[in-house]
Amino acid sequence: MGDPKIACRNLWKLYGPDPVGFLKRHDGRPSIEAIRAQGYISAVRDVSFDVMPGEILVVMGLSGSGKSTLLRCLSRLVQPTAGEVMFEGRDMLTASDSELIELRRHKMGMVFQNFALLPHRTVLENVAFPLQVRGTARQERESRARDVIELVGLKGREGYYPRELSGGQQQRVGIARSLAVGPDLWFLDEPFSALDPLIRKEMQDEFLRLQKVLNKTIVFITHDFDEAIRVADRIAIMKDGAIEQLGTAEQLVTRPATPYVAKFTENIPRDRLLSVRSVMASTSPRKPAKDAIRADALLASIARQIVTTERPIDVVDDEGILVGTLDRGTYIDALYDQEPAR
């Protein structure tokens, strides 16, 4: 897959009287007990991961878990205490102010939870703002802004002011603004949390539609596990500033690394998350039956077939080659979280 777009290694962000010194005294790896005992607050604790080009990494955690601070460390809105953040192989933490400004003007976009629109600018001016800042001529930036506004479905609202728009529309402006410079790396900080549930769902679809077209590298923050499952390629679950587990939704549900992750995933409807591949039993190679199912089908989509078929159903991959079988018992166990009889 090549090199990661953005990566972080052993990233720390501590708040307190002397975070750097404190970290040094504990050889760079203080325990959470030591941090708490000395009155420090750990927002980000020894976090490492890679995000590949075109991948959506969702960072999921409850409020106070440090997910927003982690995002701000990646975008360097917050200066981390220790560790490194590599963007396209370049260390972000040693970048000078002017280098950072250049990076943000060309390579990064960010969407904020409360939209953070400039109240005195129209939709068009808000979207054109990052282009204006980097010195793009008026004509060019406005035509570019109009394109992006059309892309997010706000055509006709260019002259409106933020307060004249609904929450969902405002966030569309926020999204358009973050896309105006054509960034490679797209940060979204709980972009839909301030919206009503129905609008939120609509905006998630919109986001997925956009991503299909744009294929950006994305770090997406949310506190909503359902949202994480809907949009993520991989999910990182954070607690007390550290990542509890990082993996695909399926991995988190089927093989939770810690009780905390298990607790999170226990109420997730599995039939819409698990694929046949993740629960099927292996089998010896032979010619598959006519009613074989695909390995990447979701369990929900084969429910009727499972109910009406007595014998184990054959599972095939994309090329139609037999890769396993699935019987009724395993299917039920997988849905209702029974350990399969191994």
């Binding site: 701000r72 975008s75 809105l77 400004i101 250049e102 990076l103 943000r104 003007r105 060309h106 990064m108 976009g109 960010m110 904020f112 939870q113 409360n114 939209f115 953070a116 629109l117 400039l118 703002f129 990052p130 204006q132 800042v133 980097r134 603004r177 973050s178 410079v181 940060f187």
Partner: peptide
């Protein structure tokens, strides 16, 4: 957040203040 939005747009300190 508004300030952060300005920073992420790549504002210099002067642009940040005036815009």
């Amino acid at each position: 957040e508004i300030r952060e939005a300005g920073k992420m747009a790549g504002c210099t300190r002067f642009q940040m203040l005036w815009m």
